[in-house]
Design a protein around this nucleic acid. Structure first.
Lengths: 211, 211, 211, 211
DNA sequence: AATGAATGAGGCTTCATTCAT
DNA sequence: GATGAATGAAGCCTCATTCAT
């Protein structure tokens, strides 16, 4: 599930790499994308030198974390598609799981610079494309099933997912309820049913492609 | 509508203060809360010294921006409450306007540290409380009118607003459509109508209060 | 007794000047010669602008304080010479009073830079010369009286005075006893009496003249 | 004799640390305790970063210098005690050597802030205590020998030493003579011999303990 | 290959001094 | 004349990155 097989690394090197990635993920989440490299290294239990051997600079580390995150989302999406009996249920599951992915994804989205870095990375781009493909299929399926309103596209759903990834401004112990309720509201809004038609046109994956 | 009239300042000092605040708002938005103070000063057309005379450190500046932002939201909420014929319409307007506030609000929410700073500021706290009061009245009103589903509270709506304030990952020219559609979806989800009841209990303002 | 008659100043201007000088003296004593000019101004109850009108820069202020201090020492010396019945008693009094002068003198002697500034100031130079003249007479007199050992000069005594001006590293309440005892020891050392002759030659005022 | 062996440092790191300390000592002496850290670093032949890695801030550096200085004084005192045939001679030697220690000791004593920093440092405190212990023994010994007047204590001698550490206001080439003569005067004052008794009570180490 | 020391650029902040009100 | 606002140079310190051990 790791984004970057990176030739073959010796077992210990691989372990180092993983520890660094995990440390970076955690610290980005807790402290934002500006944590000193040295602290990431310390948390990973290695020296800075080792960190830099693996990731030439901060941007490389950010990209690696982003790739890892998106890879995880892709895996979730594919699992949902493959394991759920109906596309609607896959959609519901996908949206529910976003909550779980939140912690891992939004980390890198904190600073505009970090975001720019990620946006430019082709590897990450690639994952995003694949995710959108799966989403496209799920959306189409759910509409064919008559469960999902027909005036939404994968782009719309993607936006919802991204919103659900946002850290809500609620105390830790309420955060889960909050997300559950928002999700339920969104599902109610997504359900096929007479209602006010959405403004604009159906949003596709392409609409969200940057630049 | 500025948060801090700050006794009487000499005319030029006041103008400087306002320019600095505006510059900070803009640069926080564009670059995140870590922009060099010097750049903010340059953009405001003053020397760093002036900036520091007015705002003793970065945190003070962040707080001032946050206060200004929340004051704006409060003004919007009160205007919506006072000017719209029904509470439901006030609610719709409020959610629509969030989009306009986005640029100004989310600025300071980028880094965990910045967020902590804001959370602690009593002045800002105060604005948040007042905003929630207005929201409470609007929500109750819309429910009395039978337009708003009865299993939501001001807390739920506040969360939606905060989500709408998030920068969506879409190209600039699509961003507006995206937000319009998300908003419409949310409104569809909020409308009183037979549907799946929301999980958990109605969220009140208190549920979102930190700590 | 003020060092610098400075043409004629209007009464209020003169009062400002004196307040600034007093404030500077006090703050140099408490905080060292690097206290912010602004704090000196505040303590004097005037704006910085006023301070700078009176003293073009920090060095000018330091010089003024030094002049004031030395003028005071000179006055003490002359008073001792004029009022005491014997030269030895004048000498004893002078050394005793140094204690009182300490607070005011050592202030400006804290930083090497400040010291350089003072050393170069001709006005202060002048006071030092006059002081040495008085001291010369007192020393000669006391030796003629047979009270003061004959192998010391005004230079030697001046050094002792300067040592007595040093802040001793003792708790506030012990400081006075300490100085009294040191002084008594020194006087015992100075008294004419068979003992080991001092090394080197008699130190005159000229020996201490810098450069 | 260095105050802080600081676990084991890599050979080069240790050398750097020592160079920094030496540079700081020299520059504090010449320029006072406010010399720019960068200049200290330059003089030590290292980058600022290195300086800061070793001494987290200026205060840490000041403390380290102070500790080193006091350690040196202690060593001198112990050597004098151990190597001189009589306690009186040990005392004379100690007072003479103070002159040599001057350059290194008074450095850090220039600004009130620096002094406060040092006073608070327990490590330095410790050295001061040990020094006083040695002094106590020397004083008692010299009195038993009948050489030292009986109405002085280690506290009195400590004060004399501290005075001798003061930079005398004399041209460089005269400074040594000056100190020799002052020292001789003091010794004459200290010698056991009928004379005027000292005022107050014998000063002990405790009398000088701050707070 | 791993470590952690060294470097120095760059951001933060203070404060001496100047200048508009 | 007095005031206090504005300026910007200069010192402090941090941290990304490089490099010796």
């Amino acid at each position: 599930m790791t984004a970057d097989p990176d030739v073959r690394l010796r077992a210990d090197a691989r372990r180092n790499r993983d520890q660094i990635l995990a440390a970076a993920k955690a610290m980005f989440a807790e402290e934002g994308p500006d944590v000193p490299m040295e602290e990431i290294a310390r948390r990973a239990g290695v020296g800075v030198g080792t960190l830099y051997r693996r990731f030439p600079d901060r941007d490389a580390l950010i990209k690696a974390v982003a790739q890892d995150n998106f890879a995880q989302v892709l895996a979730e999406a594919e699992a949902a598609e493959g394991e759920e009996p109906t596309a609607w249920e896959a959609l519901v599951r996908l949206l529910s799981r976003s909550r779980a992915l939140r912690l891992s994804v939004h980390l890198a989205l904190l600073s505009p610079q970090a975001w720019a870095t990620i946006r430019e990375d082709p590897q990450t781009q690639h994952f995003r494309d694949e995710i959108m493909d799966v989403l496209d299929r799920i959306v189409a399926g759910a509409q064919r099933e008559g469960q999902l309103r027909s005036d939404v596209g994968a782009g719309d759903v993607a936006v919802l997912v991204s919103l659900l990834l946002k850290r809500v401004p609620a105390p830790k112990d309420t955060a889960d309820v909050v997300t559950d309720r928002v999700l339920a509201l969104m599902l109610d809004g997504l359900r096929a049913r007479p209602g006010s038609p959405l403004p604009g046109r159906v949003l596709t994956a392409a609409d969200l492609r940057d630049r």
